[in-house]
Simulated scan of single mutants.
Amino acid sequence: MPRGEEPEEATTQRARLADRHVGARIRERRLMLGLSQQQLASMIGVTYQQAHKYERGLNRISAGRLFEIALVLGVPVSWFFEGLQESGATQPLGVRQRMCLELARNFSLINNEKHQEALSQMARALAAQSQGRTIE
């Protein structure tokens, strides 16, 4: 093998990891917006099964389709690749990150500003308490 070239298997493996990473980012953003897979599928003009395969990284997404998904989800195309290492390794969402996403999504669904402020104050008080300090 000529110097500087990689085996085809390594290249294919990195591509699969990238497909899974992009799919996970699609799912993350969809959940952040409170959309179901069916709703996303309808918005981008594919079947529910196809959207599911995209999110699992089972089917590769064309550039045009990824552009359409980015428009629908309100993010730049580059957002889907954030967190993807050059090696192809991806950093899966942890339980804490999932909870933060769910909290942010649910908070944004609260229409009453007083309720939002009360929840925000409660979060500040709990954070201060867990760090052993008081809030003013």
Rank of each mutant, 00 (worst) to 15 (best):
G132Q: 15
L33A: 00
Q91C: 11
G83A: 13
P92H: 07
Q116L: 08
A123L: 13
T134D: 14
E102C: 00
L109I: 10
E82R: 10
E55K: 06
T134R: 15
G74Y: 06
M99L: 07
Q50E: 11
L109G: 02
R56A: 11
Q38M: 09
V72A: 02
S36A: 12
R105T: 07
Q39L: 03
S42L: 08
Y54I: 07
I61L: 02
W79Q: 03
T12C: 00
T12S: 07
T12D: 02
H115R: 10
V95C: 04
R25F: 01
A127D: 11
S130M: 11
N59Q: 15
Q97D: 15
R25P: 02
E28K: 14
I135A: 09
G57H: 07
S120M: 11
L101F: 02
G57S: 05
R3L: 01
Q38N: 12
M99V: 00
P76D: 08
A51C: 10
L33T: 01
E68H: 15
S108Y: 06
R29F: 10
R56F: 01
Q49D: 01
F81P: 05
M122T: 13
I135V: 15
R65C: 08
I44Y: 03
M1R: 06
A128R: 13
A89G: 08
V22F: 15
M1I: 04
Y54F: 15
L58R: 12
Q116P: 08
L66P: 04
L109D: 11
Q38K: 14
Q131T: 06
Q38D: 13
S78P: 10
E117N: 07
A24T: 13
A128Q: 10
R98C: 14
L35K: 14
A118D: 01
V77Y: 07
E8V: 10
P2N: 00
L101S: 05
Q131L: 15
P7G: 09
Q121D: 02
S120P: 10
V46C: 07
G34E: 03
S130H: 11
G74E: 09
A104F: 06
V22T: 13
C100I: 12
Q129K: 15
R60G: 05
E82Q: 11
A41S: 08
L17K: 10
E6T: 01
Q121L: 03
A89Q: 14
G88P: 05
Q13F: 00
G57W: 03
F107D: 04
Q13D: 02
V46E: 04
G34V: 03
L119A: 09
K53I: 06
S36N: 09
S62F: 06
E55N: 08
E28H: 15
K53E: 13
L93K: 13
L84D: 12
T47R: 07
C100A: 15
L103D: 04
M122H: 02
I110H: 02
P7M: 10
V46G: 01
V46P: 03
S108C: 09
V95L: 12
I61Q: 02
R20P: 11
T134K: 14
L71A: 04
S87F: 01
E82A: 12
M43T: 03
E136M: 07
F80E: 01
L33F: 10
G57Q: 03
G74C: 05
Q116I: 07
G34K: 04
T90V: 08
S130L: 09
V77I: 14
A10N: 05
C100E: 15
